[in-house]
Design a protein around this nucleic acid. Structure first.
Length: 464
RNA sequence: GGCGACGUGGCCAAGAGGCUAAGGCAAGGGUCUGCAAAACCCUGAUCAUGGGUUCAAAUCCCAUCGUCGCCUCCA
């Protein structure tokens, strides 16, 4: 198995610290607002990776955090006249519901910054002792110049960055690039006791502490959006490695950004689609299919057109799961042979693609080949029994990708009898060649979302 | 200004030195059908542009143009 590692900017052979086990930390959201589908995309990417690792037989220890204390949360809570903790709690609960809706497997642990204060303080103290950090007026800063490896992930040199005019100059910092590990509390803000006075942790140290606490000094995979590479992940490396003296994460995996009208979907630009909004109009599989088709590292341009394409692609996968034609007579031994050979070929192709840096787009191609062969067999008259192995394989493999292929429509059985009745009546109409009336029944049912399909053996129907 | 990613048929997207450049969507033609729908069959790209390396390049190198991300909070 090969994986693209941001750290080396190249594809590397994947090996784990412990045989058969993968420790994976993924940066979750800061809970200060409704999540948008960019957040969902990131969670989906790592869900797909996690599912595939499990398919490969690894036991995955998957940690995804919630940043539940931060400037924005405090600001937002003040605006809404809410308690910042209650605000965070609300959005965490909402996000967890979204994860379920998207068929994203629950992480092994979902730690929260506010519950990791001991570890955070311990780490900051340790960094100060080792000379990697210094307190000033109740704040604590990381001493970037002391860390010789600083810039290794993002490929930046401290000197290059120094020339940037965007860095705010704070006279209390030794170097403009030094970043906060601990921030002294202003009146009215949530605060915790520390050796440096009341305050709260900086964003970066939270993740370092949660990693250490839940996965240990070294982890296999650290993931997140590629917008986190700098400064967040760079700083995490600086903190963790300075503290432990060991290499922190072995593979850094970053997903590309979801874009809307040519720009990254983000709060500040305001070009976002909330998860709520998305799910009101589309199935969870749709977004997953979008992600699967595009490749996790590439930017993904969101548009109505591409959404339709994804939905049609899902229909295509589903088409192969339909039962045999009514009155199917069965196909020849050679035909069955072709089908079972394709099952093997598709599974191999699937694995080969996914092994190559989770090439889900290539993996899908293998699945669509299986779809074609299944449909060919059905058209040739294969029975349900003859189709079942291939169909089961397709379900298994789409399941590895996290697709459910379920109909969103969960209509009660109540309507079924009426539809059957209409079909029965229409059958008589057709027998008497009353085409106009029979077409009217079909058209009106179509308007109601019921699709009729006539065949020699009779009429079948399904919800659109 | 610095760092990085990318540009493959109408759209999305694999492929990363050499077999017919995957697959999906859309389109056109056909089979089936009373007509449809579904399914099946058939049809299309020389790979942003210009140089170069090589027996051989979409794949490597250089340049140009273009798009996007990061450099401030961000999945």
């Amino acid at each position: 198995m090969k994986v693209y590692n941001t750290l080396s900017r190249s594809i590397e052979e994947f090996t784990t610290l412990q045989p058969g086990r993968v420790s994976m930390y993924v940066c979750g959201p800061t809970v200060y607002a409704k999540a948008h589908i960019g957040h969902a995309m990131s969670a989906l990417v790592f869900d797909i990776i996690r599912r595939y690792l499990e398919f490969k037989g690894y036991e995955v220890n998957h940690v995804m955090n919630f940043t539940d204390v931060d400037d924005k949360i405090i600001l937002r809570a003040r605006e809404k006249r809410m308690d910042p903790f209650a605000l965070g709690e609300m959005y965490i609960r909402e996000f967890e519901e979204h994860l379920i809706a998207f068929n994203i497997l629950p992480a092994t642990v979902n730690p929260r910054a506010t519950r990791e204060m001991d570890q955070i303080i311990k780490m900051i103290s340790g960094l100060i002792e080792k000379g990697f950090a210094y307190p000033v007026d109740g704040d604590v800063y990381f001493r970037v110049t002391k860390d010789r490896g600083y810039g290794i992930l993002s490929g930046r040199r401290i000197d290059d960055m120094q020339s940037g005019y965007r860095i705010d100059v704070d006279a209390r910092k030794e170097h403009p690039m030094d970043f906060a590990l601990w921030k002294a509390a202003k009146p009215g803000e949530p605060a915790w006791d520390s050796p440096w006075g009341k305050g709260r942790p900086g964003w970066h140290i939270e993740c370092s502490a949660m990693n250490l606490n839940h996965l240990g000094e070294q982890i296999d995979i650290h993931g997140g959006g590629n917008d986190l590479i700098f400064p967040h992940h760079e700083n995490e490396i600086a903190q963790s490695e300075s503290f432990t003296g060991k290499q922190f994460a072995r593979y850094w995996i970053h997903n590309g950004m979801l874009q809307l009208s040519g720009e990254k979907m983000s709060k500040s630009i305001g070009n976002l689609i909330s998860i709520e909004e998305f799910l009101a109009n589309h199935s969870a599989d749709t977004l997953r299919m979008l992600v699967l088709n595009s490749g996790y590292r590439n930017p993904l341009s969101y548009s109505e057109e591409i959404l339709t394409q994804a939905e049609r692609a899902i229909d295509r996968l589903r088409s192969s799961l339909k039962p045999a034609l009514p009155g199917a007579a069965g196909i020849s031994r050679e035909g069955v042979e072709v089908l079972s050979k394709q099952v093997i070929a598709s599974e191999q192709g699937f694995i080969q693609s996914m092994d190559d840096d989770f090439n889900s787009s290539g993996a899908l191609a293998s699945l669509f080949e299986l779809v074609r062969v299944i449909n060919q067999a059905r058209a040739d008259g294969a029975t349900d029994e003859q189709l079942s192995t291939a169909q089961q394989k397709l379900l298994d493999l789409t399941g590895v990708l996290g697709l459910t292929l379920q109909k969103t429509e969960e209509t009660g059985h109540a309507a079924d009898g009426f539809i059957d009745l209409l079909i029965e009546i229409r059958k008589d109409l057709r027998a008497n060649k009353l085409w106009e009336l029979s077409d009217k029944v079909r058209d009106r049912l179509a308007e109601l979302g019921v699709v009729l399909e006539d065949s020699k053996e009779g009429t079948s129907w399904h919800w659109k």
